[in-house]
Design a protein around this nucleic acid. Structure first.
Lengths: 368, 368
DNA sequence: TCCAGCACTCACTAGAGTGGAGTGCCAGAC
DNA sequence: GTCTGGCACTCCACTCTAGTGAGTGCTGGA
């Protein structure tokens, strides 16, 4: 993960120079920039998101809130560039938004924040027909999000850390091998194989299973004590000891939440430098990195991390939208969308919000 | 999947013009091509795999088995081109192997077929330290293969179709919800949630669980009958019916074997056309397609499918190496390696073989 | 404060020229 | 016959040189 995310909270200057004279145009002029500059920035970002080409002053004059000539737009654009919202790839080219520009767009502009009817329908369809177990649903949800937004989608499943053990079972698998099967209160199932002593028979296994259950039931895996009461039968005790060790192993491996990545091919469509694609895909292969990256972003209170805001070098040309999934007010997973910094933020945010809500609802139905 | 694989078995012409005069050079001249042409083809393929640049006659004269002048090499290369083993991207460029050329290389040339010591050590290390459950091991195996070969690796886990049900358990999860947890003889665990009737209490659940177990134990999931003996208690019977339905759901969803893909970022390094990368990644996202593709290739008796041999258009510039993983002689999974047609076949084959063997061994230890 | 006009910049494209890697062919040597 | 050195030829890749056009900054006037 490297150094901590370098977040610039001061992006929005504290002087609200709201200019209302043109409010008939419904321009969302906001803090830090006067209404026209905000409208121009809005137009530049919007057009650049669509075309991926530098935007010239001429392309902006017709945008709502900008009823001035291109010369005036140019002068405003120059100001926006001085303030760090836009850059020129070279003199005599149009402008491209900087990360700061995108940040302002996301925070103060961005227009419509609800999904289009087609998308809403797709989401409804999906959740109406979602069936099967949680893992499968999360996997498919990542595909849905990728479809909706044309971004790579990441879905982190609910953490099982605090779920109490509901059932522990010991199943013999033949020759000196048994499986410890744990069911948690939230419906998650964990398994771990253990080796049995030579003389462990069905009866010993049954007794050990009972003792293991008595020992572990009711508490979360992480709180299962390490020593179970001795039975007097050394074979049974040995099996129970192995079983407790297995429970601890399970509790340890549970730290890494499950991650489902969908639509990673979209990254290839987003960039034309194959090297960028490669480095982004390499990051996506490292589940741990991705999960803790999403966590970091959420912890800093952000919804969108643009460019270098998250501090992961290879993703400098990417933006990440994160959305916590909560069940009855309790956080129970995370949704993430990864795209180029010129991704469609309004769409991504809307999709993440809608899908996150529905997913939380759905997870709630299961948990209740 | 489109049309069936178009396999050209007649690639090796049936006239074995083996020319032994230069056997002191240890050239593996084989069927279809005289020794020198084979050596030249070998040299061209080997060099092209390394450099990805068209190979000229001058680059080949020093190769073993080719002790002639560049002029002679040129004339042989022209012949190889006439026969379809090589092509020129344009006049006055060097030669590139065709799929047919790669095919001959794989079938008759290719040199060393064992992993280098470093790789062997890596494999040994890996399997010595491999722990945890099967799924996790398969996932990591795909990473290992990708590391070894610089290809994208695919690992298909053992099928659980024929594994007998070793244990069925019904675990209540609170409000009208229970989990059917099935353990199969090979250690696989499956779960499926069911809804309970309003009046199902712990006792009913326990009895239903017992009946469900009695009904399903011993046979593979697919062979579990649909009607269990009635108990006389309608609540219990209703739960049992739901449970049996859940078992059938599980048996159905088991058809798709588990697929683990590792190192998909390597595809981005293999091609410089971002569009190719995108289409290949899109295929890799479709688990079903990949699994049945590997199956198809194995069924046609191939180990390597080059270019269009497997009939999947978007993978026309790729080659696939497949290797069955067998446990005690029974097929129990598949390993696949996906790379550009100019992939390092000897390395890929060696790695697939070694890892496949070790993986089979390992799976055998667990199953025994 | 805004705008029309103007000079300027610079990526992009097309065309011409050049060097070099590579080929095919052929006459002569072995 | 088979192989080879030599030669003419091809054509990509690269460089250089305009020419074009989208876009800019600046300025003086409304």
């Amino acid at each position: 993960m490297g150094r901590p995310p370098a977040l610039d909270i001061s992006l929005v200057s504290p002087m609200p120079t709201v200019d209302d004279r043109r409010s008939d145009n419904a321009t969302p002029g906001d803090a830090g920039l006067d209404a026209r500059k905000a409208a121009i920035l809005n137009a530049v970002v919007t057009e650049y998101i669509g075309s991926a080409q530098p935007v010239g002053s001429q392309h902006v004059v017709d945008a709502p809130g900008v009823s001035v000539s291109s010369a005036t737009v140019r002068s405003d654009m120059a100001a926006l560039e001085r303030d760090g919202y836009l850059i020129q790839p070279h003199t005599s080219a149009g402008r491209i938004p900087t990360d700061k520009g995108y940040r302002f767009f996301v925070d103060h502009l961005g227009g419509t924040r609800s999904l289009d009817p087609g998308g809403r329908h797709q989401v409804r369809q999906f959740f109406d027909h979602a069936h099967g177990e949680i893992e499968q649903m999360l996997e498919r949800t990542s595909g849905l999000l990728a479809d909706l937004t044309d971004c790579t989608a990441m879905v982190v499943g609910p953490s099982h850390e605090s779920a109490a053990v509901r059932s522990v079972q010991l199943v013999g698998l033949g020759h000196r091998l048994a499986l410890v099967v744990v069911v948690l209160a939230d419906g998650a199932v964990r398994k771990q194989s253990i080796e049995l002593p030579e003389d462990a028979d069905e009866a010993a296994l049954a007794e050990a299973g009972g003792r293991l259950a008595a020992h572990a039931l009711g508490a979360p895996l992480a709180q299962v004590g390490s020593a179970a009461a001795p039975s007097g039968n050394p074979t049974v005790d040995s099996v129970v000891t192995s079983g407790v060790a297995a429970l601890h192993t399970l509790s340890g491996s549970d730290g890494g939440d499950q991650l489902f990545v969908g639509g990673s091919s979209r990254m290839a469509a987003a960039f034309d430098a194959v090297e960028t694609v490669r480095s982004v895909l390499t990051i996506l292969e490292q589940q741990l990195v991705v999960v803790s990256l999403l966590r970091d972003i959420l912890d800093t209170g952000l919804t969108v991390a643009i460019g270098t805001e998250h501090g992961v070098e290879p993703l400098a040309s990417c933006a990440i939208v994160v959305m916590p999934v909560s069940v009855d007010g309790v956080e129970a997973g995370t949704i993430g969308l990864l795209g180029p910094t010129r991704m469609n933020y309004p769409l991504a945010l809307a999709a993440a919000r809608v899908v996150g809500d529905r997913l939380g609802q759905r997870l709630g139905e299961v948990a209740r």
